[in-house]
């Protein structure tokens, strides 16, 4: 967690919905090459924290800093362009477009070709090639021409991850990437996360409930409780701490 490797930082990040404070003065820095697991019970504010970082929600207070730049006021699209990658907890794709087109759109956005009105979209073979390569990585190449709405839940989750890969972001934010996936599908995603961690020297934020996943992948754990940062540290350390036992892990601590 070396200081000069910091890519993403939040300072006093807060959002209130009416009287309810969903994220409460969260200050935290994330470094390159580190996978941080974010844990906490349902409703703790993990997804909301992500939404504040990637720009789907506007903070009531506090700042978000990406690569030294204050991005708190920027719209989501610009944050994405600056290297913030986000995969959603609830699958959120382009349902009537093809699997291939979903990925191609992301590559096209990253290459800033969206305002080209004169060329044919299909003539950009470099975009298509890259989209196909990404589909291969997530084992969706055979389904490239299928309409997304017809895909199984597991395949939609894979596509969700494929879209983030296509962004080539500096920061990867996974929000329960394997939720609802079957035992034989989940490893595809988990292997990918491990692969990204090895190869891309990326900053990875992972919201995950499964303890065995956290144990194998995480370099660091932060705990959110009622929207506030309740613990932060090495996995073994955090899992042992009293606050985590009480707030989240409960009896599961016995397995550690």
């Amino acid at each position: 967690m070396a200081g000069d490797n910091i890519t993403l930082e939040t300072r006093g990040l807060t959002i209130r919905f009416g009287g309810h404070t969903a994220v409460d003065k969260v200050s935290c820095a994330f470094s390159r090459g580190v996978l941080t697991a974010i844990v906490g019970p349902n409703g703790a504010g993990k997804t909301t924290y992500f939404n504040l970082i990637s720009g789907q929600l506007k903070a009531s207070e506090g700042t978000v800093i990406l690569n030294g730049r204050d991005i708190t006021g920027l719209p989501a699209s610009q944050r994405t362009a600056l290297g913030l990658g986000r995969a959603f907890q609830l699958t959120n794709l382009f349902p009537s477009l093809s699997v291939f087109e979903n990925v191609r759109l992301v590559v096209q956005a990253r290459e800033k070709k969206g305002f080209d009105v004169f060329s044919l979209a299909r003539s950009h073979s470099e975009l298509a090639d890259e989209a196909n390569a990404i589909l291969k990585r997530v084992h969706l190449a055979e389904l490239a021409d299928y309409q997304v709405s017809g895909l199984s839940h597991g395949d939609q989750r894979k596509l969700e991850v494929a879209l983030m890969l296509a962004m080539k972001p500096a920061v990867f934010m996974f929000d329960e990437p394997t939720a609802g996936m079957s035992m034989d599908e989940a490893p595809v995603i988990l292997d990918l996360i491990a692969e990204i961690k090895e190869q891309e020297h990326a900053t990875i934020l992972l919201v995950e409930h499964k303890m065995d996943v956290i144990r194998t992948l995480a370099d660091r754990i932060i705990v959110l409780h009622n929207g506030a940062l309740a613990a932060d540290g090495e996995p073994a350390e955090v899992m042992k701490s009293a606050v985590v036992q009480e707030a989240y892990l409960g009896r599961e601590i016995a397995d550690v």
Partner: peptide
């Protein structure tokens, strides 16, 4: 006809489908 089949046109279709996600993948809706 060219515009709707251009990269710009493909972004329009994405926005029509899911403007929230179009913004999230980097298009200023």
């Amino acid at each position: 006809l060219r515009i709707v089949n251009s990269p710009f046109g493909s972004v329009l279709k994405a926005i029509r489908e899911n403007d929230f996600r179009a913004e999230a993948i980097g298009y200023r809706v």
